[in-house]
Design a protein around this nucleic acid. Structure first.
Lengths: 132, 132
DNA sequence: ATTATACGAAACCAAATGGTTTCATGTCAA
DNA sequence: TTGACATGAAACCATTTGGTTTCGTATAAT
């Protein structure tokens, strides 16, 4: 149970970088509900199909979407797993938020439907190095 | 209590983009423990002081660090608050992880000291649009 | 068989990014 | 005051990025 590294593909593209672009974040949001062929996807964006296609490739390289050929179309679907890396990285900074911010954080999490309202925990300041 | 927007500065630079660069992530990691002047900071990196300085500016523009002049030096310190935006964005995808991944997620969170081990929740698939 | 659709690859382009070196300025020390 | 230190601004450069248009190819439809 020690293998916690790269549970999915080889991340040719960085997750942090993949997610840095607003268009690509919207793409992930779109693909949350269902898989979609490229043309349908690109219909939601004010740029060419080819441009969207390239964004999809970046996301695929980061392991954030998977493609599947169906007839003449290529359907993409969300693959949220690599987001864990982001989540883990963020988790490191949890203990450096002051109480005011911790409160805001709880508010946010609750507002998003995550019912872990008793997060508080010990809050002992553990000296540790961040992942990267 | 409705104003949940931009609790800090005007984000001239995007948090997602600020955090996309590995050097800048390392910078945040460095500044976690204490505030530091530029020269000391840049001593930890294989690039010129000026380059580090520019990275610090990007972080500052995103509100992730704050600077403070002390004599002839400028000290930088971490300002983790804008990371909440990232956290909030990520939280949206929590409910789209399958059970296997949810388990891994719990493992990660626990390993990082966040004791919210009973996250499971209803897992009812709520149709909702992501933040961006 | 022919035509239309779905898509990626390629070539191209402008702008942003990440880095450099040089210079000017403010502050501390002798 | 003179010199060293700390720093940001500026100009510059190569590479990456985000977009375009054009073309080729595979599949579906008529």
């Amino acid at each position: 149970m020690s293998k916690l590294e790269s549970t999915a593909s080889s991340p040719k593209h960085d997750v942090f970088q993949a997610v840095a672009d607003p268009t690509r974040r919207q793409l992930l949001g779109l693909l949350v509900d269902q898989e979609m062929p490229v043309t349908v996807i690109s219909g939601h964006f004010p740029m060419s199909r080819t441009a969207v296609s390239k964004h999809l490739r970046v996301l695929a390289d980061a392991g954030l979407v998977k493609e599947r050929k169906v007839g003449r179309e290529t359907r993409y679907r969300l693959e949220p797993e690599p987001l864990l890396e982001l989540k883990r990285w963020l988790a490191f900074y949890d203990r450096f938020w002051d109480n005011k911010l911790a409160a805001l954080q709880r508010y946010v999490e609750q507002a998003d439907g995550n019912d872990d309202s008793q997060v508080e925990a010990p809050l002992t300041v553990v000296k540790r190095e961040p992942a990267e």
